[in-house]
């Protein structure tokens, strides 16, 4: 049993490592300027290539070219694909630290933050691999239980199967949740400096002015306006032209 556990863990880590390293090359970064890098990478992204490292590099280029809004947007897109992309997360925190007057989320309790870090650590593909391994273990333990000698006490295999099933269900639920969030990510980024947040769509009174790169959650959209929630819980309406969504809306023809 112990050997099996070690074996499965090794398989998982190896597979995960392979996925991460598959795109890496030992070649050093070429010496193109950020503008040239951007010109090289942007067509790839526009052609529909979804890759966390591609989005990350686009974010770095945009930042170095003085566009923090676009930069944060692409870092968020990288995180949307791979929530464990540490560099993208750190770069967002770095850019936000340059704007302490911006709306900041309240500091979370330690344990909650730890749980969220663990949630982020398990990206969608890592979760899928964990789920697969747990599924295999559940199958093995169910087989063990079914072929267990009938005259013996069944407590141990039942306990093992129950624990594995609980983990399997939790992982499966998280995978479903992450999958849904990846496809329907409600986050958006303010693209223009001083974007007003109004009390109502179109003719509402400006309640607050947001700086470029502020991250928002979109609650609902109608007629070119979106109801947004800021990190501190403040809610208001902002024109869609001021925003760019992490997951772009599909055009009617694509629907």
């Amino acid at each position: 049993m112990k050997r099996g556990l070690y074996l499965a863990l090794s398989v998982f880590l190896l597979a995960s490592l392979c996925v991460q390293l598959s795109a890496q090359t030992p070649a050093a970064q070429d010496s193109l300027s950020y503008r040239q890098q951007l010109d090289k990478l942007l067509p790839l992204a526009q052609s529909g290539t979804r890759n966390a490292d591609l989005f990350y590099n686009l974010g770095v280029c945009y930042y170095e070219l003085g566009q923090p809004g676009k930069s944060i947007l692409y870092f968020l897109r990288a995180l949307n694909i791979d929530s464990s992309h540490v560099q993208a997360r750190e770069n967002i925190a770095y850019i936000q630290s340059l704007h302490p007057s911006d709306v900041q989320a309240p500091r979370r309790p330690f344990l909650l933050q730890l749980l969220l870090n663990i949630y982020d650590f398990f990206s969608l593909n890592r979760l899928a691999l964990v789920l697969l391994i747990l599924g295999l273990f559940c199958t093995l333990s169910a087989q063990w239980l079914m072929h267990y000698p009938p005259e013996k006490e069944h407590g141990l295999p039942v306990l093992v199967l129950s624990i594995l099933l609980i983990f399997f269900l939790i992982t499966g639920g998280t995978l479903l949740l992450k999958n849904h969030r990846q496809r329907h990510n409600p986050k958006a980024v303010v693209m223009r400096e001083g974007a007003p947040v109004n009390s109502a769509p179109s003719n509402g009174k400006a309640l607050q002015y947001l700086s470029e790169g502020t991250i928002l959650q979109i609650k609902q959209s109608s007629n070119g306006w979106s109801q947004v929630i800021l990190a501190d819980g403040f809610s208001g309406w902002i024109a869609d032209a001021q925003l760019e969504r992490v997951v772009p809306l599909k055009k009617p023809a694509e629907k």
Binding site: A23, Q24, T25, A27, A28, Q29, Q37, D53, L54, Y56, N57, V60, C61, Y63, E64, Q87, E90, N91, Y94, I95
Partner: peptide, 8 residues
Amino acid sequence: MNPLLARS
């Protein structure tokens, strides 16, 4: 700010 990642 973390640097660009080298990817071919």
